[in-house]
């Protein structure tokens, strides 16, 4: 599914758009439709709260120094779920992720992961709980080789887990080919794969991905999303921030739309994609 198709359907009548979305549901997301336990509502300003979710963010206020960016954010990721956060620039999408890892200044609210309150817990301790984070930029150690980058991903373990290394190399064969090359000499897409591979070394329950498609050549974007689908299909829950909103919403289980540091809409990805209000306000019509 390319942007051109999406753009074409955008210009079409509502029926055509519906058909397009339905077609997607049929092929891409048939297997995901049961996993979503939430009762679907039309995209409303009500954010559904989930009990016993894997990651549960409640009433979160956060920012940098005196600058508050997030206000009263509620957000859930369930076991094995694929959640996307979309929204305009500066809406606080990345800030949510950074706040989970306490690399912003937390001003209120709570973050609970897998039953443990991790509000303000240091990143090096959060890692132990099964939470992985791939930041948007500078997400590899450039002067370390590919294999050393992956070893750093497993720093908290006594031994580098060979089976995990095998798994990462199977997912991203290019990394095995280049394993002794300095990470700084890899292409942007390869660095993105390495960053994901590093986060996967600990077999996290939840992987936070901040704009994995940023800076990639258009033909690589779909490949990257395919890889993310595979990671999710193998049982790792995903929380992803994406600029590429239409593609991301089409692939994910559920989406959140952020505006001005607030969580404005929540629903199944396709429902959001198809919601006239969301489309008009945030997805460019």
């Amino acid at each position: 599914m390319s942007d051109a198709d999406a753009a074409a359907s955008d210009r079409g009548a509502d029926e055509e758009t519906q058909a397009d979305v339905d077609a997607n549901t049929a092929d891409d997301h048939a297997e995901n439709s049961e996993t979503d336990a939430a009762e679907p509502t039309s995209a409303a300003t009500e954010i559904t709260l989930y009990e016993d979710s894997l990651l549960s963010i409640r009433d979160l206020d956060a920012g940098y120094g005196d600058l508050q960016i997030l206000t009263d954010v509620d957000l859930d990721v369930n076991d094995g779920e694929y959640v996307t956060i979309v929204g305009p620039n500066g809406a606080g999408k990345s800030t949510v992720m950074k706040s989970v890892f306490a690399i912003t200044d937390l001003m209120g609210g709570s973050v609970v992961f897998d039953g443990a309150d991790i509000t303000g817990t240091k990143p090096e301790d959060i890692i132990h709980l099964g939470l992985g984070y791939v930041p948007q930029n500078d997400n590899v150690f450039p002067s370390l080789s590919v294999i050393e980058n992956l070893e750093m991903g497993a720093y908290i373990l006594d031994e580098v887990p060979e089976d995990r290394l095998r798994d990462v190399f199977d997912r991203f064969p290019i990394l095995e080919e280049r394993k002794h090359q300095k990470a700084g000499t890899l292409s942007g897409g390869q660095q993105q794969m390495l960053a994901m591979g590093r986060a996967l070394m600990l077999d996290p329950k939840l992987l936070l991905l901040d704009e994995p498609s940023a800076g990639l050549a258009p033909d690589l974007v779909d490949e990257m999303f395919d890889r993310i689908d595979e990671i999710n299909a193998d049982g790792t829950a995903i929380m992803m921030v994406e600029q590429n909103a239409k593609k991301a919403l089409r692939r994910c289980d559920r989406g959140y739309v952020f505006v001005d540091g607030k969580n404005r809409y929540e629903d199944e990805g396709l429902t959001l994609l198809n919601d006239p209000q969301v489309r008009q306000d945030f997805l460019g019509g």
Binding site: F101, I103, K122, P123, E124, I127, H128, Y133, P135, D138, N139, V140, F141, P142, S143, L144, E148, E151, M152, G153, Y155, I156, R198, L202
Partner: peptide
């Protein structure tokens, strides 16, 4: 050594080291 590699990682990028789980 693991420590030495972590030192090189820290000299590359401190904040990335922290979120990777290196006890900085």
């Amino acid at each position: 050594t693991k420590l030495g590699k972590a030192m090189r990682a820290m000299s590359d990028d401190q904040s990335l080291s922290r979120i990777t789980g290196i006890p900085t």
